[in-house]
Nucleic acid binder design. Structure first.
Length: 428
DNA sequence: CTATAACTCTCAA
DNA sequence: CTAACGTTGAGAGTTATAG
């Protein structure tokens, strides 16, 4: 039987910021979403103050000032780099690992027990603390859903100790007793809607859901929830997904720092988003067969005139050429743009994605010679940007001033990925 | 009518 | 000073459409 561990970094973004600025050690720290919009990470001190996850920053700014909360803009380069280091360490503990998100990984621990699996979990936790200075919690169980739940118990100190909770060591009776006390919304895959529906039926605790009639659940809900029930019972339905499959769609969208009225500015933004998405597309060696463009006014301001539109168009020939793709996204944008509105957000999506190897050539589109020349050009573009940084070489259509760019009022240095940032690391 | 495409809803981090 | 509310991806289920 497989034993799964779920390793999750505590307050990951906030912890990364603290790591490189010792003055923040016991201070309340939040990290904001793109555009400095919402709180997406909170240090323990902030959680203790009762600041909720996801709250719009401007709504708590006064309170934050009062408590001396330090706010950072998202520094994705820093978090991604730290995340890679965590994964590298975890890979030393099991050959089978699924990197589930930027701060969470599943490990197959089967056969690695010491006295039990909890001791191995402690070793993992200790090494990440020693080598990186980051705190993680480890949940262990016979299914991924149970490992996730065990991790929740470790974090909330409902079971286990020292940030490690091992369900394989609990008796059935203890587990049942524990599940009585956990609400269903803590279960992986049970979100807001399901919680409301299940509660209306009187199913409020993990134990109740685990012991519910799974056939009834499938009929009234879905096969997904039925699988969750099986997993809660210790019957594994979800495998470790070690290889991340190629994306089926690539989306690039962003809110603007200020409202945008001009088509020309929107064109720049859309060209930039298209370039980023196309880069990702080429990284996985794929082609897109369709593009979508979306623009919208501020949905949080219903008092101003609202407009939103998204249109998808198939391409005459699948491509990964930034110029071709941005030509199409620009065309679609012009079609959906209506003057007189203040736009708040725009985005593009690359759809109908397929491997380059399966490329079908359009009959009247381009000759082989042109195609290979374009491929080489894109290869050169990516190579230059890989060496000199994103956006070093780009289409003129992406603009220079970029009045639409998002707010990032309080960005920390890229401590680990840029020389300028490295120089700013303080001794701690 | 069926098979598939397109779209909507839900969830997650 | 003001105004200020994230992004990306997947899968299931439902509805529309083609043949």
């Amino acid at each position: 039987m497989t034993v799964f561990a779920l390793v999750d970094c505590n307050n990951f973004y906030a912890s990364c910021e603290k790591l490189f600025n010792p003055e923040l050690k016991d201070k309340p720290v939040v990290v904001l979403s793109n555009n400095d919009g919402c709180v997406v990470a909170r240090s323990a001190e902030v959680k203790a103050l009762g600041i909720p996850m996801g709250v719009p920053w401007f709504k708590i700014q006064r309170e934050a000032k009062h408590y001396g909360i330090v706010a950072y803009s998202s520094n994705y380069a820093l978090y991604a780099d730290m995340s890679n280091r965590v994964v590298e360490i975890l890979s030393g503990f099991s050959p089978n690992i699924e990197v589930y998100s930027i701060d969470e990984s599943f490990l197959d621990l089967s056969g690695f027990e010491r006295q039990g699996y909890a001791e191995y979990g402690m070793e993992i936790r200790q090494r990440i603390a020693d080598w990186l200075g980051l705190a993680v919690c480890v949940g262990i169980g016979p299914t991924k859903t149970l490992a996730k739940l065990a991790n929740h118990c470790a974090k909330k100190q409902l079971a286990g100790e020292n940030g490690v909770c091992d369900f394989t060591r609990l008796t059935t009776a203890d587990l049942t007793c524990l599940f009585e006390r956990i609400p269903i919304n803590e279960i992986w895959g049970v979100g807001r809607q399901l919680t409301a529906k299940l509660e209306a039926m009187g199913i409020k605790t993990v134990r109740q859901l685990r012991d519910a009639d799974s056939r009834m659940i499938r009929d009234r809900f879905s096969v997904v929830l039925e699988r969750t029930i099986q997993e809660l019972r210790g019957i594994s339905c979800m495998d470790l997904e070690e290889v991340t499959p190629d994306r089926q769609q690539i989306i690039s969208s962003r809110s603007f720092g200020t409202l945008i009225y001009d088509l020309a500015d929107l064109e720049e933004a859309v060209a930039s988003y298209t370039a980023r998405a196309a880069e990702k597309l080429r990284q996985q060696d794929s082609l897109a067969g369709a593009v979508q463009v979306m623009i919208r006014t501020n949905v949080f301001k219903p008092e101003v005139p609202q407009y939103q539109k998204a249109v998808t168009v198939p391409l005459p020939e699948a491509t990964a050429d930034t110029r071709m793709l941005s030509c199409w996204t620009r065309r679609v944008l012009k079609r959906i743009y209506r003057a007189g509105y203040g736009y708040h957000k725009a985005g593009i999506a690359l759809l109908d994605i397929r491997p380059r190897a399966n490329q079908q050539f359009g009959l009247f589109v381009a000759d082989d010679h042109a195609r290979s020349r374009n491929d080489r050009l894109m290869g050169t573009l990516d190579a230059i940007n890989g060496r000199y940084g994103r956006g070093a070489l780009r289409l003129a259509a992406e603009g220079v001033e970029k009045p639409w760019q998002m707010r990032r009022g309080n960005l920390s240095p890229r401590y680990t990925t840029e020389w300028d940032g490295v120089a700013k690391v303080r001794a701690g």
